[in-house]
Design a protein around this nucleic acid. Structure first.
Length: 218
DNA sequence: AGTGCGATTGACT
DNA sequence: GTCAATCGCACTA
């Protein structure tokens, strides 16, 4: 990892899909545990305004309130009673939308992550939304925090790294609007999630884009 | 107040 | 490849 710096809110694209693409290559940093944990985002999903699959589709509730916070805030929730999910709020304040962080390529604090996970194969450390949250010790207490605050326990940074390619597929594990191409991955990265069969099906819909032009970088 | 159901994971056939 | 665990939340009454 080259020199790490915090991202500024004005660098983030407001649009949910643009943000989902932009976040690939950026770094999630977990501080306050003694040892810094960090991982590069290699997989995201967009849940834009008006999306039937989005938690914010119907209305604002206690659970999804963080999706309505300004751009760059964390939305953390429990899925299936077992797995915690980290999202980044998108669009403008009072608009419910977010980007789900589905996989990280671990960069720092790997031994601690392994402890949090209960000793697993390296490849399973942060491959999948529930796994990465467990590895980074992300819980509901981090729901609603500002990810642009690099003095806080969880924040977003960059080392200037941008993926060479971005793959686009359908989203995983949803039933509504299941055909929309709103999942974005760094093709070939071993930490991208999804069962083999799903990856194969997803590969059929795979399209490659030029990340620098579409990531909204200055 | 009761009920059904996930933006998943891990164990097992 | 199949399948149960697990619980907060949304929806019905």
């Amino acid at each position: 990892m080259r020199d790490l710096r915090a991202l500024r809110r004005d660098e983030l694209p407001t649009d949910t899909v643009a943000l989902a693409r932009f976040l690939l290559g950026t770094i999630v940093v977990r501080d306050g545990l003694g040892q810094r944990l960090a991982g590069r985002i290699v997989e995201t999903e967009a849940y834009p305004p008006g999306d039937p699959a989005s938690h914010a589709f119907r209305r604002r509730t206690a659970r999804n309130a963080a999706m309505f916070l300004p751009l760059g805030h964390a939305y953390v929730y429990l899925a299936y009673g077992t797995a915690l999910m980290l999202n980044v709020a998108s669009e403008t304040e009072d608009v419910g939308a977010a980007v789900l962080v589905r996989a990280l390529h671990p960069l720092a604090g790997l031994p601690q992550m392994a402890t949090h996970r209960g000793l697993e194969r390296l490849r399973d450390l942060t491959r999948g939304p529930g796994r990465l949250a467990q590895a980074m010790r992300i819980d509901r207490t981090l729901d609603g925090i500002d990810l642009m605050a690099s003095a806080g326990p969880l924040w977003l940074g960059t080392d200037g790294g941008v993926p060479e390619q971005i793959g686009t597929t359908v989203r995983i594990g949803i039933t509504k609007a299941a055909d929309r191409p709103l999942r974005f991955i760094v093709p070939g990265d071993p930490f991208v999630s999804g069962p083999t069969a799903l990856n194969r099906a997803a590969d059929l819909a795979l399209r490659l884009g030029a990340p620098k032009a579409e990531a909204g970088l200055p």
